[in-house]
Design a binder for these strands. Structure first.
Length: 315
DNA sequence: ATAGCGCCCTGGTGGC
DNA sequence: TGCCACCAGGGCGCTA
């Protein structure tokens, strides 16, 4: 499920091909993707425009268009992914899961696949875009996200910290995987009240989020089941997950079986020993989790790390 | 302010 | 073997 690192990986793998290129054809194969807009109107608004820049905000992909200044806004939700491919033959457009085809100047197609059809595509003016994204919290890897700014947002909140992290109004880009992983690294129980975190815990949580997301991007994101980058490559970070999807398996730090509970209606995995419900000495931070010996410096997405259909995941 | 739902959606899985 | 309930979850809308 694409969260910030996956969307960023897609953006990076696409930007070089897309930027400067015109959209010569747009085919919406599933009207639901662009609803409430009409597929024909959606396509008409895009065809002939050039992709000036490909950007990301939280889990959204932004195609900045010229000359209109409009923006194509994509959200991949659960199972959406983009694939660059040679121009698709017409009969292939009936492939199940294919939702839209963006024909690019130069003979390539950008294909949007989304098995479960949660993804959305919208065209915005700069004004409507600002309105659409107004509620998003800061970028975790941007300058506005600091221990101090995190502390201010947490202060006085009685909501559970896991729920807080999933709320895109607090921080833009975390989903269930990285929320669980960040809390594990910080040694914080997912059900702790947001406002109850100590200054030290807030600092650890901030550092955990930043380091986790940077590492996950360096590994090309996490592939659970369906995620792919724009060249069809799986991510590599799933082999580095400490708790997510590992219920019942030993904690990589202390060996205690990973527990699973429901928080905010979501499955939440954590280590009962490293992430105690409350109390002092609640973990000293887990900076070295997973070890630092294996660096993704020469990692090539999709090569040798294609654990993309993890059988143990539903344990 | 917050919790807890249901809804959207489909494929995979476990139980019987 | 078939059938069915259930699970995965991001965002949104709704109620309590």
């Amino acid at each position: 499920m694409p969260e910030l690192p996956e969307v960023e990986t897609v953006r990076r793998s696409l930007a070089g091909v897309l930027e400067g290129r015109a959209l010569v054809a747009v085919e919406v194969l599933d009207p639901r993707l662009v609803a409430p807009a009409a597929p024909a109107a959606f396509a008409r608004r895009l065809v002939g425009q050039r992709v000036r820049r490909l950007c990301r905000r939280g889990k959204f992909l932004l195609f900045q268009l010229a000359p209109s200044g409009e923006v194509l806004l994509l959200h991949l939700r659960m199972t959406g992914y983009l694939l660059l491919a040679p121009r698709l033959r017409r009969q292939m457009c009936r492939e199940p899961g294919l939702r839209a085809r963006f024909g690019l100047e130069g003979g390539m197609d950008l294909l949007l696949w989304d098995l479960r059809r949660f993804g959305t595509a919208e065209v915005h003016t700069p004004v409507s875009l600002a309105h659409r994204l107004a509620a998003l919290g800061p970028e975790p890897l941007g300058p506005a996200f600091t221990p101090g700014s995190l502390a201010r947002r947490l202060a006085g909140r009685s909501v559970r910290v896991k729920t807080f992290l999933l709320d895109q109004a607090n921080l833009a880009g975390l989903g269930n995987i990285y929320a669980d992983e960040a809390l594990f690294r910080a040694g914080i129980h997912p059900e702790r009240r947001a406002g109850s975190l100590t200054e030290d815990e807030v600092s650890r949580l901030h550092q955990a989020i930043v380091e986790l997301l940077e590492e996950a991007i360096a590994w090309g994101g996490t592939t659970v089941r369906t995620y792919r980058d724009a060249r069809g490559a799986a991510g590599g970070f799933q082999q580095r997950l400490a708790v997510y999807g590992r219920a019942g398996q030993p904690c990589p730090r202390c060996g205690t079986p990973v527990a699973r509970i429901r928080v905010a209606g979501r499955s939440s995995c954590f280590c009962p020993a490293c992430q105690p419900v409350a109390g002092p000495g609640a973990g000293a931070g887990l900076q070295a989790v997973g070890g630092r010996e294996a660096q993704p410096l020469h990692h090539r997405p999709g090569e040798g790390v294609t654990v993309w259909s993890d059988r143990s995941w539903s344990a």
